[in-house]
């Protein structure tokens, strides 16, 4: 069902949705990025259309809403374990097709990989409705078309929105929300549009030809020199799902504390460190290789699509100007030309 809202009308819709949902969207936080006087574009709660930042890509993705950067697994007191009870909070997340597709990757790991579901992810994920933002021109570093994550299927979203000069046109799939939408807008015909060509294109290496010989290639040695293992490419990535589990004791009472998890990144020191100090990937070029292979090969071997969605954030944030899309293309060329 398609609808058209004036700006006011859409704000009224948001207001009524806000009664039942926490609404997250990319916003602009004035002067809050790392460098002074730079704005931080990131996810936060919104109440009105004006707060949504649509002109720039967000530095971090919506991942942190469903897979928080730091999340308590349980508290303990005198050896008894207590998990925080579920909240009934429901969420609406505004996001672009790439980021919607990134959640499909997270779903694979947290809900399908291994013998059990991750209950912490699941209990948040179940309460999310996606509002996909139509994205037809993208940004400079995007390569979602090459990664086949420029499009979404109707079942992937509750609503699909086109932000226009004087309002919002959209399509609603979610039956619960349809009532809400239809009571406040006029019905129109709506056909979602998707970007068909990015400025950046990557050619994925031929899976058949991707042998371990390429692991020894000097391509990676270049990154040994360039990468500083800061981990920004991991933390900005909407599909990186790794985490570390840690315990803390609360200062006051050595008998109580919590076990929590927090994001981990395969570029960061300590990722493979075992008790006793042995590390499996000391070299930064090896870490670049490991990440690259995970994003465009390993994940796809286990599941039916690649992990990387081509959002380009890792390119945007790398302080050493390492471009992931360039790396993929270099790898393909090497493989084409024979290692």
């Amino acid at each position: 069902m398609g609808f058209n809202f004036s700006e006011n009308g859409f704000n009224q819709l948001l207001e009524s949705l806000n009664q039942d949902y926490q609404i997250y969207a990319p916003v602009r936080k004035k002067n809050k990025d790392s460098f002074s006087a730079n704005d931080l574009i990131t996810y936060d709660l919104i109440k009105s259309l004006e707060e949504i930042e649509l002109t720039v890509k967000s530095k971090y993705s919506a991942k942190e809403i469903v897979f928080p950067i730091r999340e308590t697994l349980f508290h303990f007191v005198e050896g008894e374990q207590f998990i925080a009870s579920d909240t009934d909070d429901k969420y609406i997340i505004f996001l672009r097709p790439c980021d919607r597709n990134a959640f499909k990757r997270l779903d694979k790991i947290f809900l399908e990989n291994g013998p059990e579901e991750d209950i912490y992810y699941k209990r948040l994920r179940e309460n999310v409705k996606f509002f996909v933002i139509e994205c037809t021109s993208g940004f400079d570093s995007c390569f979602c078309v090459s990664m086949e994550s420029n499009t979404v299927e109707a079942e992937d979203y509750a609503a699909f929105l086109r932000f226009e000069e004087n309002g919002v046109s959209c399509e609603v799939n979610d039956q619960d929300l349809a009532v809400e939408f239809s009571s406040q807008a006029e019905e129109i015909k709506f056909e979602p549009q998707f970007i068909e060509k990015n400025k950046v294109e990557v050619k994925l290496p031929d899976r058949e030809k991707l042998t371990n010989e390429v692991f020894e290639h000097q391509l990676w040695t270049e990154y040994s020199q360039r990468c500083i293992a800061c981990g920004r490419c991991n933390t900005s990535c909407p599909t990186c799902s790794c985490f570390t589990v840690k315990d803390v004791l609360y200062d006051e009472n050595k008998k109580s504390g919590e076990r929590f998890r927090r994001w981990a990144g395969c570029h960061i020191d300590g990722f493979t460190e075992m008790a006793g100090g042995h590390n499996f990937r000391e070299d930064y070029g090896d870490r670049m290789r490991y990440k690259t292979m995970h994003k465009i090969y390993d994940f796809g071997e286990r599941f039916d699509f690649d992990m990387c969605v081509g959002c380009g954030r890792c390119d945007d944030v790398c302080p050493e100007y390492i471009s992931f899309s360039k790396c993929i293309n270099k790898l393909s060329t090497i493989i084409e030309e024979g290692v």
């Binding site: 002067n31 809050k32 990025d33 790392s34 460098f35 002074s36 931080l40 990131t42 530095k59 971090y60 950067i69 800061c230 981990g231 920004r232 991991n234 933390t235 994001w263 990144g265 960061i268």
Partner: peptide, 18 residues
């Protein structure tokens, strides 16, 4: 000096008042 803000890969250090 604000170097911690610059180092952080997750903006865990917020740029506060000047």
């Amino acid at each position: 000096c604000g170097e911690c803000i610059l180092q952080c890969p997750t903006n865990a250090w917020e740029r506060g008042e000047q």
